[in-house]
Design a protein around this nucleic acid. Structure first.
Lengths: 252, 252
DNA sequence: GCAACAGCCTGACGTCGCGTCAGGGTCAAG
DNA sequence: CTTGACCCTGACGCGACGTCAGGCTGTTGC
């Protein structure tokens, strides 16, 4: 079985020009040429192109891809293993970025501001061994924390006031439920948590029960968020956290 | 609070040159200059840089990032929502690529070859609405299937023979267990499944119980994989599949 | 009080991975 | 035997910076 440039390009989701380029630089060469000079790719070339595209997708420059693939030590299985590992690292990194965006959304809703270090954290070079040392340094330095200030929200004034009023309302009712002695995992508290979740979804972003549970954990684990709730009523951070997580379990 | 280029660069994990570039093209301009002409970035600029880096990470060209951020209709919350959505799409795509690599590894181990369409599937333009129509077309055309051929493995000959012998051994013992009437979820069968999983991990890639369970499902859902087992013994595809999934549950 | 050195500035050219013509040959269908 | 889809090789362009070069600034140590 063999393919022309156009066929292979369609198959692989790249342009003909890209294949010309890869031929020119010797990265993926067609194993044959027809008498008219047409490129003719076979199954083996296809294999190679697939590998190239995967490494490219993972962010490798083409010359590095070439040295990787031309390494006689590395058999196909080794490449698959490496690609597997790199993809899982990317999965982790993306998950971290999703979490960071969610944290930012939540902070914005509450009018809390995150420290600059924290906000760029997820963009770092992401060399795992560096991470431990850097995190140490970052969290040890409490100046960064002191710097954190009120956020000037940039919504339309009226929108913001409406949204804030809605939020305040739920918070007040949480505080009332706590004062009335309703357990955090009671139906009443869980209903409030669900209302809270839907409010976030409506006003900010699509907040699944799982995501909401993550936020719930943060309310007690992150001191700025817990301080926010504790200022409303003592014990409220833990109360809301428990209610939110219980509701998440109930909803799924 | 304000930052110099160098400080901001270190904070955000980019080079000074990048910030110069963003200033030149008007994407992120320092809100002030010192009397000596030094760039001075404030918290607001930092905000903007964060947004730019996130969109950049997601693959947007800088001019599009500029139009996105300068759209007066889009408030910060809208950006966060969009970024959240895009990140989750990326998460899905990465998951699909991990699954594809795992399928390829497994196919290689069994000496099955995947069709070219299948192998490039994950690289497509990834426009979700196109996807349904294209998949329809792809899977409807059974010529593609007919084209699928035996794979010429490119491991060292001896390595391959050893690995293949190991695999054959486990397969034979699975077949024997089936013939002996041991239930697929018996301890004996699950022990074989666990041995199989460790064999994959040792010879091919780090195969977690969850990953292995996914492969197990594929043994019955993908006809080429099930045909492979059925050729060894009737009922073996389902048997191995069940054992593997039961073991995955047991291990976690 | 000044040297040294890290850090800032503005050009300006280089690079990587292609996109995009231009100008021309090839080939299956009608 | 023409039409239209596909192929070829230059060659230039571009986006997003990297990398000097040549020069100013500002703090620290003696």
């Amino acid at each position: 079985m063999s393919w022309t440039v156009g066929e292979l390009a369609r198959l692989a989701g790249v342009t003909v020009r890209t294949l010309h380029h890869y031929d020119r630089i010797g990265l993926v060469r067609p194993s044959e040429r027809t008498s008219a000079g047409y490129r003719s790719y076979d199954a083996h070339d296809l294999d190679r192109l697939q590998q190239v595209l995967l490494y490219r997708e993972l962010g490798f420059p083409l010359d590095e891809v070439a040295t990787l693939l031309d390494d006689p030590e590395a058999d196909p299985a080794a490449h698959l293993r490496r690609q597997h590992r790199l993809l899982r690292e990317r999965l982790e990194r993306t998950r971290a970025m999703v979490a960071a965006v969610e944290k930012e959304m939540e902070a914005r809703q509450m009018g809390i501001s995150l420290s600059p270090e924290e906000r760029f954290e997820v963009f770092g070079d992401w060399l795992p061994e560096e991470y431990a040392a850097e995190a140490e340094e970052r969290w040890g330095d409490s100046d960064a924390w002191a710097q954190s200030q009120r956020r000037t929200a940039a919504m339309t004034k009226e929108d913001w006031l409406r949204v804030k009023a809605e939020g305040d309302d739920v918070e007040r009712r949480f505080a009332a439920a706590l004062a009335a002695g309703a357990p955090a995992d009671s139906n009443a508290a869980q209903d409030l948590a669900e209302e809270y979740r839907q409010q976030i979804s409506r006003n900010f972003y699509d907040c699944s029960p799982e995501v909401h549970a993550g936020l719930g954990r943060m309310y007690v684990e992150d001191e700025r968020f817990s301080a926010y709730y504790e200022r409303i009523a003592p014990g409220l951070a833990q109360y809301v956290s428990t209610a939110v997580q219980a509701n998440a379990t109930r909803q799924s």
